[in-house]
């Protein structure tokens, strides 16, 4: 027994030594290679910004011929030129990823005035939760987990993160579309996304010549799949946002959840008022859940006109230069109190 105990202690020592060597010599390189956003979060200790903005690609996405290339945060910075603002963003990211970036902020002798975390309403839907992009996103935060660095690195090699095959993810989405009920306080023809999508797909838009307008029908179906859901307490995104709110409270950092603009006009004109009702109710739910002394919910879901959305055949939150400027202005007004403190 003594021999075994000695071996176990020796093994722990060897592991600890290996961890130190790894952290010193290889970890920074691995972070750069696999978790660049975590590295950006760690490096904020050097730049010490006043505002940190965590986002998906809605912050930076531009299209060819856009009249400006600046991101929402860069526009926002023009309203507060004396403040330093830095964004960390990655396509398709969501609260489940943001929380790992946040955990690597080192607040030993500084703190930002505010951290803004974007909320894309669609990130609560089953399609996004079970997106094939989830595998690379989860991979990108393995090195940020709360284990010793060398163990995290080994987890990466073992693919010890959510790398569910796409076919299984697809099945889950289809299951949710069929089984997750839509709660309306009034009678509707549709109890779930599948029913609604089917109704919408079976000819809801006509061209002037009387033929089906398949482009509009297809987009309407995307809107149904994207926004027709009721956020319920077991939604995994809620747990992530809860964790972020708790983290901010523990670290005594002012937190703002920013509900980013959606094309509500399209949702209304292509689908109907029922969809808009669900979107608004979900936003209200989030505002009620998260607004407290430490956390603000900035609601800009209806903050931009249709013209500000660059993609006309999908539900993405990609804004034109005018859109990004306009959103920055609204944000500036909403954040004024917090930032001028």
């Amino acid at each position: 027994m003594k021999k075994v105990t000695l071996k176990i202690v020796s093994l722990i020592l060897v592991l600890a030594l290996a961890n130190v060597a790894y952290t010193l010599f290889l970890y920074p390189n691995d972070l750069e290679l696999k978790s660049d956003k975590v590295l950006e979060a760690i490096q904020l200790e050097e730049t010490r910004p006043d505002l940190i903005y965590l986002s998906d690609c809605s912050n930076t996405n531009t299209v060819e011929g856009d009249s400006c290339q600046q991101s929402v945060v860069e526009h926002l910075n023009t309203y507060f030129p004396k403040l330093k603002m830095i964004s960390i963003d990655k396509s398709a990211s969501h609260a489940g990823i943001f929380k790992w970036w946040l955990k690597h902020l080192n607040f030993s002798d500084w703190k930002p005035k505010v951290i803004v975390v974007t909320i894309g309403l669609r990130s609560f839907n089953s399609d996004w939760i079970n997106s094939p992009l989830e595998t690379p996103l989860r991979e990108s935060v393995v090195l940020a987990q709360a284990y010793p660095n060398i163990i995290n690195r080994f987890m990466l090699s073992l693919k010890a993160y959510d790398n569910t095959p796409d076919s299984i993810r697809e099945k889950r989405v289809k299951f949710d579309w069929q089984h997750q009920t839509l709660d309306f306080p009034y009678e509707t023809k549709y109890k779930c996304v599948k029913q609604w999508d089917s109704i919408q797909g079976n000819g809801s838009h006509l061209k002037p010549d009387g033929s089906w307008d398949m482009e509009k029908i297809s987009l309407a179906c995307h809107y149904v799949k994207g926004f027709a859901f009721t956020i319920k307490p077991d939604n995994p995104r809620l747990k992530d946002f809860d964790e972020i709110a708790a983290w901010a409270k523990n670290n005594k950092v002012k937190l703002c959840f920013h509900i980013i603009p959606e094309n509500i006009t399209y949702a209304d004109s292509l689908v109907n008022k029922d969809l808009v009702f669900l979107m608004r109710r979900n936003v209200t739910f989030l505002q009620e859940r998260y607004t407290d002394k430490n956390t603000l919910v900035l609601n800009n879901m209806e903050g931009l006109n249709t013209i500000c959305f660059t993609e006309k055949n999908w539900t993405t939150e990609h804004y034109s230069c005018g859109g990004r400027k306009s959103l920055a202005k609204k944000l500036a007004q909403q954040l004024e109190v917090v930032l001028k403190k």
């Binding site: 290996a18 290889l26 690195r153």
Partner: peptide
């Protein structure tokens, strides 16, 4: 262990 855990 170092090669396996840190460099695989």
């Amino acid at each position: 262990l170092f090669f396996l855990l840190g460099m695989s």
